[in-house]
Every structure is written in structure tokens, then in C-alpha cells.
Design a protein around this nucleic acid. Sequence first.
DNA 1: TTCTTTTGTGTCAAATTAACACAATAAGAT
DNA 2: ATCTTATTGTGTTAATTTGACACAAAAGAA
Lengths: 251, 251
Amino acid sequence: MQQSFESLIDNYLPGQSVDCVIIGYASGELKILLLQWKATKRWSLPGGFILKDEDMDKAALRILKERTTLEFPFIHQFYTFGNYRRRDISNLNKELAAMNINSPKVNEWFRQRFISTGYLAMVNLDKAKPQPDELSIKCDWMPADKLPPLIYDHNDIVAKALEYIKMRVHFLPVGMTLLPEKFTMNELRLLYETILQRSLDRANFQRKMLKLGVLIRLEKHFAGNAHKAPYLYKFDKKMYNAFQKEGIGFV
Amino acid sequence: MQQSFESLIDNYLPGQSVDCVIIGYASGELKILLLQWKATKRWSLPGGFILKDEDMDKAALRILKERTTLEFPFIHQFYTFGNYRRRDISNLNKELAAMNINSPKVNEWFRQRFISTGYLAMVNLDKAKPQPDELSIKCDWMPADKLPPLIYDHNDIVAKALEYIKMRVHFLPVGMTLLPEKFTMNELRLLYETILQRSLDRANFQRKMLKLGVLIRLEKHFAGNAHKAPYLYKFDKKMYNAFQKEGIGFV
DNA sequence: TTCTTTTGTGTCAAATTAACACAATAAGAT
DNA sequence: ATCTTATTGTGTTAATTTGACACAAAAGAA
């Protein structure tokens, strides 16, 4: 590993990184995909570097794919973090030593100042299979509202991402990649409530969503419960995409 | 200049830049501050580089101050442009030659790939005094809706900035730095119409703005016209700031 | 059957929006 | 002084949206 990363360094743009906030959703909770580093046991966002001939967006997609083995139809760049002291590297030597890395080149690489751009991706937890990389001990989903302390400014990055998705949900449909293919109106509303951190009136939410025109009603879903069976819905991809492309759909 | 920039290069983060979209407002038009380069006569946004020990936000403020000799109470980072081929440097040699720059170091600097973060600032045109720098022939306000072709991807950067301010104006007060200290309700509404690119009902706009609570009504303004004199208003800075700090004031 | 729980839709007041109305008024014209 | 013109501040009213709650239908268990 040590060798391989050292040899890769020359392919990357120095000083630039991408950090991905991968949001998943399960059992009424937003989860964030985190890595735990072998050496330090500290948690961080999955991130990576940009190849010298690679668009930054493409780098984000590549990194996302590496971590989740999924393709993402939508990713959202939400902010770039450029504070001088955003990364605390005071323990870098120890950390690299603990990883058995003694290459001066690698040391120098991580010692640089990095400006990092945050990308948000959303994924259905059933589909995403976290893949810890060689430097990480674990790769796990953690509840967004009680994350452990993360390295550098990664807690700030997550906070910005959550703020960003909260903003989006106010005027754009959200859920395509967070929910399974078919879902009930209740599941969709619970997702919205989780994102917005407040409860929404069931009746009014349903009316509003149906009126928007991004949902297609499917067959009923008999869950075996002793009560009326809800309809299943799926997103009307054309409408959903149209909304996404409109960008911030004001005016 | 050539010498001085060459000597400055070592102080800057390589591959990183900041581009500023400085929006001004006058006579019912949004204007963008542009520079015209001596050598190529081509127009560009005012931009600059980030000092190695400088926060990126601070770099944006510094660059803005250099161009306008103003302090900005608010700047807004809106997007980071990281496409591999965003800068066309095919004529770089000619351009540098035309500027009498033959330093290989400077050549190499501009030949790098840059990832650039866009910052938006808004300024009252009466106050801002454009300062062409040594490499620029002109420094001028141009109407936002009919800009000349700009270098690199700067037209895209402006488009993103205009989209961003359009978004902001929907849920945050805008105008503090764009309008003079005192203004009429009509002037404020015209600004909003210019940003949103559509007309707004005069009566309803007035009611809504007053209800928001960010305006303080001042004395009447007798313009010497043969009709009823309008009130002047100023922003209630406390309220205005509160709105800004709430960030994207959703819930 | 009856009971429990959840769903889809209904209702209705309150708030907001959109469109237009109109008297008040500043200053020039008569 | 009075009339005229253009613009302003506020009023009105219908249409639409929002928020809160109501209620019958329905699925399965008791």
C-alpha cells in the first residue's frame, strides 16, 4: 500500500481534495458513511484526490463509486472548505508511523495545505455496500445526528451538507436515490421529516406531493398488518429529472 | 511588474484561484465588474490567488478590496469550478510575450491547471471605484445581460452567480450593498425585478417588504417631480444581519 | 363479527397571494 | 389659485395555499 500510494501521488493535483458526504437513509434516520483509520482509530469522511487530467466532478464520482460500488445519478457540490488551518496535522508523523509509512514523499503530501470541495450524494442503504479501503479499518454508516468527532473540519462539512439538503428539499423533490424503487407515501413523508427535523401533516403532505406530479401510483402494498394497505409509489423519472435540471427551480 | 509577480509566485498556493463576480446596480441594470487585459484585449473576471497562509475567504476579501477599494460586509462563496479543461491556455505564450513577460516561472505558473472558487459580492456603483491592475488595460462595469465573451469559463461563472443571487432574493433580503444608504420603495422593487427578471406588483411588494421588518421608514423624498413624493427607507442593519446570519433561512 | 390501526380523502378556517382600485399629493401648466 | 398629471400609499376582494382536524374505508387479528 505504502508503495502504491507513493507511486500514485504524482498523478494527483497537489493541495486539492474532494470530501464526500454520502447520506443514506434507514429506519427513520439519516446516516453518513464514515471511515475509521487503522492507525489512529479516528473517523473521517470518505475523500480523495483529483487526478491531474480529471474533472473535479468526475473525481467525486470516482471516489463515490470506490466507496459504495454504486453509480450515482445525482451528486451535488455544496461548498469548498479553504481555511488555512482546517487540517490539524500535528500528529501526522505518529499517524504515518503507526501505518508503517515512512516515505518522505507521502509525509510531504499529507503535510501540504489542502482545499477540499464537498460533494453530497444520497443512496439507498439497502444497495450501498461500504468498502473499507486499505488505510481504513472500518467503513460504516453512522447516524447523522450523533456522529463521533471527525478529523479535520469534517464535522463542519457534514453540517454544511445537512443544511444543503434541507434547503433542497424545500423546492425540489428528494428521495430518488434514498428510498427503494417502490415506497409508500408514509415512507416518503418520514424521509422528509427526518431531513427537515420536524413533523409534517400526513394529509397535507400527501396532497402536496401528488399535486407536484413526480409520483406514480402503483399497486397496493399488503404488508400483513391489521390495517388499510397503503399504495406504493415510484418516482416519475422524467418529472424528477426535469425538476433536478431546472436547478434551483425558482422564478 | 513581471519581476514583482515572479517574486510573488512563491507566496501563492499553486493551482488554486478565486474569481470574484462583483455585482453592481445602476439605472435598472445589474452590472458586472470586468477587467480587460492589456495584451489580449480579452475580458475576464477579477480574480487572484490564495496566499499560502491565508484562508480562502480572506483571499476573496483581499482581492475584492484591491479591485474596488471597498470593504465588503458580505461575500458569498457560490461554486467551485474544477473542470480539467476550463482554461484555454493555447495562446498563453503569445499572450505573455505581448505582455513582455518571458519568465519561465511565470509561464509555468499560468500553464498549471487551476481550480477556481467563485465568490459573489455586491456593491453600490456610486461607491465602487474600479482600479485596473498593472496587467489590465481597463476595469469596467458591464451590463450583466450582455457581457462580452470572457476568458476561460468566466461566462459560466457569471451565470452561476446570477442564478445564486436569484435564489437568495427569494428568501433573504438583498440590497444592502447594492443600493445607496437611503432609497425609495420603488428603487428597491426595481432592483428585485432586475434580479428576478420579472415584474412584481408594486402594491404587494411594498406590503411584503414592510411586513418583513428589515426596512426603516425615513423622511419623504421630494425629487422635484410633479407627483406624490415617496418615502425614503434604509435597512434596519440588525434585522438585515440577522437574516443573513440565519444563512439559508429555512427550517 | 368486532376491534384496532392506518390510510385516503374531506372540510373549513386562517393566512397568503394576486390583481386591481382609489384617494392623496407634489409640482408644473393654466 | 386652480387644474392637470404622474406617482404614491393603502384598500379591497377573489383566488389559492396552508394548517389542523375529521371521518369513513380497509386489512388483518381477536
